[in-house]
Design a protein around this nucleic acid. Structure first.
Lengths: 337, 337
DNA sequence: TCTCCCATTGCAAAGCTTTGCGGAACAGAA
DNA sequence: TTCTGTTCCGCAAAGCTTTGCAATGGGAGA
């Protein structure tokens, strides 16, 4: 059992004054004499007194904790965003309570419930890939519990959101492929109910159009974002009468699986087939060939999400959607020299 | 402002009974009549009553929160361990409060202090690479606040620890290199005050000895685990009159930097130089050539750490050190066919 | 010397839950 | 009818902090 923490009562009895006097002295209340204030603050410093957040929480009806739910904890994309949230939250004296949905809607619902039990002041969430119903979030909105979504979002009329410009990102990819003379561009997307899938498909179509390339439905595929399914799709794509000469995918997992399989089959990247991903710097630069990819401003997504969270706390009606721009970083995997 | 949560008082007034009766009914206290118990529990279920953890915490002097401090949040090694801790903690009804030391002792000290302010019931920590003084942890021990270390540990006479068998891991590497006819094996280690560095150096020496290879001090280097310094060391090593024909490094960052630089210089891996790392599956299998590496049982480290934490809670004197075994997974980067 | 006022400080309630103990009500027995 | 004994239930305190209001004491003015 941890030794009992020091309380106001302890300080008060040591100085033979009342608890309320100590409390006021510590916050420089004008009612308390200068002399006594000094004495109290000195003792508090020596004894290293820290107000009990439980008592404060009970009184103020707040915990200064933000619940954060992400699809998983181990992907760099999320951990980097979490790091950003944590940093900003800390600067405002808030802690984050972390929960993972493991990409499952059921676990996401459970996490919302758990965080609620822990009495977090609000939540910052990235939807699981399965999430296609939002009752659990509607409930939060109804109860006026501050909520912010990032990357994979919903209910954006009621909830502040931080997203990247998905359509633009894909347009950049298509433009780049086109400049490099790739003409049959395949896109392995994600579940259709996710905004990141939908918006990127929009970009795929408008990008093709812009480049004067015609849309071939065989080259637009959706997957569950897992390695296995991506492999199957690769197989399909390469069996096509007119197989793709360029591929891009919705995330790290998919695109590295694609690269691994292409290498296994002996297809040369980028000569025979170009590859582009949505990946992070670390992975992209250490792969061979180095991977051309859309860089997410992950840290910024985290920090921005936290910022919006505090705005939402102050203004319950606040529901802006912030769109962050991405940059296509061209590396070896998509440049035919 | 979030709508006020429901309290016992609300239930009590709705049923026109006292708060204490509601409280007892909810936990099936025999004093309360069967009938009334049923009615109370029914209402609580309908209203979705959840006990206020702040009030409980105040009463029981516990928060059911575990502080977790890691050197960084974005490295797969740590996020995977965190995931393990989170999973086990959740199964016991505990939350984790996450803090990052950013590999800085100063920030580590600050994190300890912050978590203490948040009144966590205890902490699970991996030391920052800078940490060579332990006063902040001695304080926790003195105050009997449960503490567990993993991977990078100290004070193991007082604190339960979870580590991998570092000496054995390196011996496996040396043995493997030797079997593959590599004879000049360089080791880029980490700061000497860290147990992982010290124990791996021990393994380096005993491994060389076991294989009948002679120790060349020029080939044993320490670095700060950052890319830049690793690069400088690579430069030194390759300038040696007798440069290494095999290299292994203390972590992902170092070894991928090494590989990148070797490739840049046109040295063939594994033909001209063998490479082995302490890495995780994802990175190791997606690199080219695929990286031979020591696999950390990361999830198990996390789960085990959490387990020890609960043991420590029950028994303040508990201070076992659990040593987990690692496995060398041989891939392309160190096999000369 | 008495009254009033200001400067200081203390009391108590609220926020929520648990739990020891006292109390009320009712039934059965004497 | 009265006493004993259950059976059920409520009071109140503890855990810690903040804050409106009451209270105390001393000094100043009349």
């Amino acid at each position: 059992m941890a030794k009992r923490h020091l309380s106001l009562k302890d300080l008060a009895s040591e100085l033979n004054i009342s608890i309320s006097t100590v409390s006021r002295a510590l916050k420089n209340h004008p009612d308390i004499s200068h002399e006594l204030t000094r004495k109290v603050q000195e003792l508090a410093a020596v004894r290293n007194y820290v107000p009990n957040p439980l008592a404060m929480g009970l009184l103020k009806q707040e915990t200064r904790m933000i619940g954060v739910i992400v699809p998983d904890l181990v992907t760099h994309f999320y951990s980097s965003i979490i790091s950003g949230i944590e940093e900003y939250a800390k600067s405002r004296g808030y802690f984050i309570l972390l929960a993972s949905s493991y990409e499952s809607m059921e676990k996401e619902i459970e996490s919302v419930s758990n965080l609620l039990k822990a009495r977090v002041d609000g939540m910052i969430v990235c939807l699981s890939k399965e999430t296609d119903r939002f009752d659990h979030f509607v409930q939060l909105i109804t109860d006026e519990i501050p909520l912010v979504f990032f990357d994979r979002v919903c209910l954006s009329n009621y909830v502040p959101c931080v997203v990247i410009d998905n359509k633009d990102a894909v347009e950049q990819i298509i433009r780049h492929f086109n400049e490099e003379k790739y003409r049959h561009i395949a896109f392995i997307s994600g579940p259709a109910h996710l905004n990141i899938s939908r918006d990127r498909v929009k970009g795929y179509l408008s990008g093709l159009n812009e480049s004067g390339l015609k849309f071939n439905p065989d080259l637009l595929r959706t997957c569950n974002m897992l390695s296995e399914e991506a492999l199957g799709i690769m197989d399909d794509l390469l069996k096509l009468p007119e197989p793709p000469d360029a591929i891009f995918g919705i995330n790290d997992m998919v695109i590295f699986t694609v690269m691994k399989e292409l290498k296994r089959r002996g297809l040369k990247i980028p000569q025979e087939i170009g590859v582009v991903g949505f990946a992070d710097e670390f992975h992209a630069t250490f792969s061979t060939p180095q991977l051309t990819s859309i860089m997410h401003p992950t840290r910024e997504i985290g920090i921005k999400s936290a910022e919006l969270f505090f705005k939402k706390m102050e203004d319950p009606a606040y529901a802006e959607t912030i769109v962050l721009q991405t940059k296509l970083v061209v590396r070896e995997s998509s440049t035919r020299n």
